[in-house]
């Protein structure tokens, strides 16, 4: 490494520290302070650390609402991802393998789905009509509908790299379409499936807008909604607000640490292809 690169690296890290790291340090510091200490947000460590106490306070707020929210968010995320992976891979597979006027038209619809903003109020009306408004099932189906574009796009381009010979060998071996899909194709999609799971899990877990519209009600709260709801309550207790921010930042942080490579692959593939 040349001296130039070392100096530039040190300067860049200093700048990145101020712009990107200090805000997160502030979150951690403030989350450990007392309410009085936290009233002014500044870059000083807590006078007295009361990290655990703050954590317990946040969890206990409004009758353990945060725990309920974590449960609801997990159910929605897991349910939606299961649907996205299986149904999305089926679509990507048939779209890639069968190049017909129908599949080409559908591909265009999928692409436009990435662009068009959902029509929220008509969706609420529809959910009410079919009794799925304010239900976790409804929310799962919505997240599947909104995530399909990205998922199908990624699967379709990945399946293009799987040789057709493999399908045909299985056809000659007497495989039914379902057997070929589940026993030959789906296992081969593992790398891209991991990417899709990670990227979509973060997106759905972090989603605020759609639960706000489609999932009102205290018994349906999701993690992002709790944070938003607690804001007014914590207005004079910034230590608790920041503890709350910290708590909902941890899951994506863990995912990022373990799946960095897959996230990067997914974000760039989805982006460059889209």
């Amino acid at each position: 490494m040349r001296p130039r690169q070392v100096i530039l690296g040190i300067v860049s890290m200093a700048v990145a520290f101020v712009i990107f790291v200090i805000p997160f340090l502030l979150v951690i510091f403030t989350a450990g302070k007392t309410a009085a200490d936290a009233s002014q947000i500044d870059f000083t460590p807590p006078v007295r650390w009361q990290f655990w106490q703050n954590l317990v306070d946040v969890v206990q707020t409004r009758d353990y609402q945060l725990l309920l929210a974590y449960w609801n968010s997990t159910v929605i995320t897991v349910g939606a991802i299961a649907g996205l992976v299986i149904f999305g891979a089926m679509v990507g597979y048939v779209m890639q393998r069968r190049d017909t006027r129908l599949t080409r038209a559908l591909y265009f619809v999928v692409l436009s789905g990435l662009m068009i903003p959902p029509a929220v109020v008509p969706t609420i009306w529809l959910l009410q009509e079919i009794n799925l408004f304010k239900t976790l099932h409804g929310m799962i189906l919505i997240q599947i509908a909104y995530g399909l574009g990205f998922t199908v796009l990624l699967y379709r381009s990945f399946i293009a790299a799987i040789p057709r010979d493999l399908d045909e060998a299985a056809i000659i071996d007497g495989g039914t379409p379902l057997q070929i899909f589940f026993r030959v194709i789906l296992p081969l999609l593992k790398p891209v499936t991991v990417t899709i799971i990670v990227v979509q899990a973060i997106a759905i877990f972090n989603d605020f807008t759609h639960p706000l519209y489609y999932l009102p009600g205290a018994e349906n709260v999701t993690v992002q909604i709790t944070l938003y709801n607690f804001q007014s309550q914590f207005v004079s207790q910034l230590n608790l607000l920041f503890m709350n921010i910290l708590l909902i930042t941890i899951p994506p942080l863990l995912v990022f640490v373990f799946f960095n490579r897959q996230i990067v692959a997914g974000m760039t593939a989805g982006g460059v292809k889209g």
Binding site: D165, L166, E168, A169, D173, G174, R183
Partner: peptide
């Protein structure tokens, strides 16, 4: 049929590849 690319299933062992048709 034997394919030009052999079309061996990369996620299966040799044993599973050979027995795949019977298992289907």
């Amino acid at each position: 049929m034997v394919f030009q690319s052999y079309a061996l299933y990369p996620h299966l062992t040799v044993r599973e590849n050979i027995g795949f048709g019977l298992s289907l």
